[in-house]
Simulated assay, not measured.
Amino acid sequence: MKQLYVPIALAVMSALVITATPTRRTTRMPTTGAPGRNLNGKMFTLSGNGGKILFYPPGTSPISSYTTRPYSTTSRPYSTTSRPYKTTTTTRPYKTTTTTRPYKTTTRPYSTTTRPYPTTTAPSTPGVSVCLRYLTDTLKLTLSPSTNPLQLRVSAAGSYILDSYRYKRLFFQTDIWFWSNIRRDIWTRVCLTVDNTKKVAQVFSGSNISIRKLLQYDWSGVPVIDIADVEGQVTDLQVWDYPLQKIEVLNYMTRGDVSGPYHGSVLSWSDISYSTSGNTLLEEDDAYRSPPGQPMRSSSGRKRCRQKGEKKSREFLNVVERNREQLK
């Protein structure tokens, strides 16, 4: 009988040793990724059904760029040692005595070690500016890192909603016509500027602007742009670590016709890294460029056209005035 119990005990102990192997909790990374690339002339098409893109500067990662990272926990499963029943049988003539002792089990609870991630605090910047072009029904853009990220969305009424989580929600209605030399475009161009010194924020969209609103917000760190829940196309993302002046915003709205090519100081479409998940597609943006034979007019070309139109208007008014004189 003892020879039968020894193999059973060895089998039970082997199974427990296998199941007691410690497991490490891992963080799920984005499904696809790319190093720093020049995406000029390209656009991303996203699906609202799970499409998501993270943009970040080359040489960094979307996880390590955050100011605060979650806790790191190491856990070991229960360690249990069991021995089978031990039965002793004594047989004497006409009398049998059986003695049985139950299982002896030793159980230790989980052993958990929890250490917070090291937190790095970057110096505060004068502000932040985010510009991009989009062709969607909705927009949801989140700027990190920070313990208080900024999220910019477009409401069904067409106004821009800025959430800073710690403070009240701000609504920006870009219904103030500000620039006259911006021609109509298929793309919607939007710029968000946050001035940490003056504690104000403002949204620019095409030739219109919003009013400035007070916002108590300090931004610092490496930018990570999260675009999700978007059905459509996005392109030409630029981020500056300071509030843009109006002439710089105008330069972006006119594709660099005012003061030369533009380039984000901390994140630029011409040198950017990205990670995608869900339904996303990187393709050429030639589907939404000007048709052949209709080149984009520069600011000087628009100025000449405007002067030519004004000249024709003056000539027409002069003809009308001469006719009036003759009728008298």
Rank of each mutant, 00 (worst) to 15 (best):
V6G: 03
A11L: 11
M13E: 15
V17N: 11
T21Q: 07
T23C: 10
T23H: 15
R28Q: 12
P30W: 07
P30S: 13
P30R: 08
T32Q: 15
N40T: 13
F44G: 02
G50C: 07
G51F: 04
P62V: 06
S64F: 01
S65F: 05
T73F: 00
T73G: 06
T74D: 14
S75G: 03
P77G: 10
Y78M: 11
T81Y: 04
T87Q: 12
T91P: 01
T96C: 05
T96K: 14
T98D: 13
T99Y: 04
T100K: 10
R101L: 05
P102N: 14
R108H: 11
Y110E: 10
P116E: 12
T121K: 14
S124W: 01
S124F: 00
G127E: 02
C131G: 14
L132R: 11
Y134I: 04
L135Y: 06
L139S: 04
L139N: 14
K140W: 01
T142P: 01
L143Y: 08
L143H: 02
S146H: 10
P149L: 05
L150T: 11
R153D: 12
S155P: 07
S159E: 12
I161W: 04
R166A: 09
Y167P: 07
Y167N: 10
L170K: 07
F171I: 12
I176K: 09
W179T: 08
N181C: 13
I182W: 12
R184M: 04
D185R: 15
I186C: 05
W187N: 08
V194L: 12
V194W: 01
D195V: 00
N196T: 15
V200F: 03
S205R: 08
S205F: 01
G206K: 08
S210N: 04
R212V: 04
R212M: 08
L214T: 13
L215Q: 05
G221H: 00
G221D: 05
P223I: 00
I227D: 14
I227T: 03
Q233R: 11
L237W: 02
Q238V: 00
W240F: 04
K246Y: 00
I247K: 13
R255V: 00
R255M: 06
D257N: 11
P261W: 03
V266G: 06
V266H: 01
L267A: 15
D271E: 14
T276N: 04
N279T: 10
L281C: 05
L282A: 02
E283R: 10
P292T: 02
G293K: 07
S299C: 11
R304M: 08
K311Y: 02
S313A: 13
E315G: 06
F316N: 06
V320K: 12
N323K: 11
N323R: 14
Q326F: 12
K328W: 00
